[in-house]
Structures are given as C-alpha cells and as structure tokens.
Amino acid sequence: MKVLVAVKRVIDYNVKVRVKPDNTGVDLANVKMAMNPFCEIAVEEAVRLKEKGVASEIVVVSIGPKASQEQIRTALALGADRGIHVETDEEVQSLEAAKLLKAVVEKEEPKLVILGKQSIDSDNNQTGQMLAALTGMGQGTFASEVVIEDDKVNVTREVDGGLMTLSLSLPAVVTTDLRLNEPRYASLPNIMKAKKKPLDAMSPADLGVDVAPRLSTLKVEAPAGRQAGVKVEDVAELVDKLKNEAKVI
C-alpha cells in the first residue's frame, strides 16, 4: 500500500514569533524553520506502517519555496522513500494547497494520505479535510490511533467530548493529533542516505492549479498582551484577593 504524507515548512515551534513593525506579517528573516510538528507525527506514522509491513512505499510532498526541500530531506531521513516538491514562492493558502495535493494524489494514487491536523503558523486546520472533500475520500481527523484492516482504516479521533473511533474505506485521509505517536530522530547515516533518495520538483502550473490566494491579510498585530500581576505571600492572601479585590469567587 502506498502512503502519501504532506509536510509543511514552518517556523520552529520554539521560536518566539515577532510581528513586523509595519504590521504586514511576522518576521521570518533569519528565523529557524522546521517541519511542522504535526507533520513529523504524520511521517512517523507512515514509517511505522512501513515497518509493520502495511505500507510498501512512502511518498512525501511539500509545497513551498526551494528551502522546503530541507523538510522533504528530513522526512526521507526518517524513512520516506521518495519526495515531491511543489515549488512556489507565492503564499499558498489551504484551499490551494489542497488542490495541489489533489493533483499529486491523482498521479500517485495512494491508499492513505496522512497530514498534520494543523500547521502551527496559520493554525488553520483545513488542508486535510479540503483534500478529502476534493478527492471524494473519507477523513479521520485529529487521529490518536490508526489501524489498517484490509480495505478499511479505523481511526480513533481526539474530539471535544473524549475519543471517537471511525471506520473509513480506503483510500482515505488521516490528519494527526499529538498523541498518535512520538516521532523518532533521524540518524546520521540515514541523513546521508536521504541525500540520494529521489526528489521530484514541479510547479503549481505543472499540476494545472491556480494558487492565487482568496484571502488577503490586511494586517498582523501583536496581541494585547497581559501584564504580570502581583505575587502573593500565602494561600490566605490569595483567597482574600480573589474574593475582595478581583471578586471572582
């Protein structure tokens, strides 16, 4: 079974994000970039399926500027077999990302597509579901467990009320939540080997997709921010303040 994994290059989650003084966006110059954490989980799940003998080939795809190839190489070092880079310097929004991924799905015909549930930059949480709708596939979003059985996949989802398990016909789309697995680190020999694995580059035009954005960002501001308050000496003072000063109990 072929598995397609979509990975996105985003700002590293440890970086303190700063809004640009002219309010046009956040400052990405000289900032450490990395694979979106949810995409790392997606790659790991695919690699585990391969180790179990369920997946036969893992194809990893990323959409973005030239430098996104770093994240594809990382995925190859973690165990993916082949990479596809849809290269563009334009801003690609979720719907257009989903259309590009659909074009890749039509070429590659994977049985399972695994994406992160959200990317930690735009926090959209859209691409996987849009891809599923555009390709007519079922979706198992926010997955904390994925079990393949013949031509079905059972997905346990983290939902507001607890956990919910669905059965989907394959091919299907799965988006990962935090507790699906704990991603491994790439070993040095595997990083070296990854350099030789095949990586195809193409453009959105090659895939016949118009990526013009439908949403425009008018401005990006820093949040209002909270001021640190006071330190209290003991629990009695805390309760007194909550009751008589803040009046919240």
Partner: peptide
C-alpha cells in the same frame, strides 16, 4: 470545536471557497 473543524473545510472545498478559521 472538533465538529466544526472537521466538516467546515469540506464545505469550503465543495463550494470552492476559502475558509476563515477560528
């Protein structure tokens, strides 16, 4: 919530429009 996050992007894709999240 997890329900809206699950089905709304499908709605947007089926109508061929962008979604504004959250």
């Amino acid at each position: 919530g997890t329900t809206g996050k699950d089905f709304m992007p499908r709605v947007a894709a089926l109508l061929d429009v962008a979604q504004v999240s959250d």
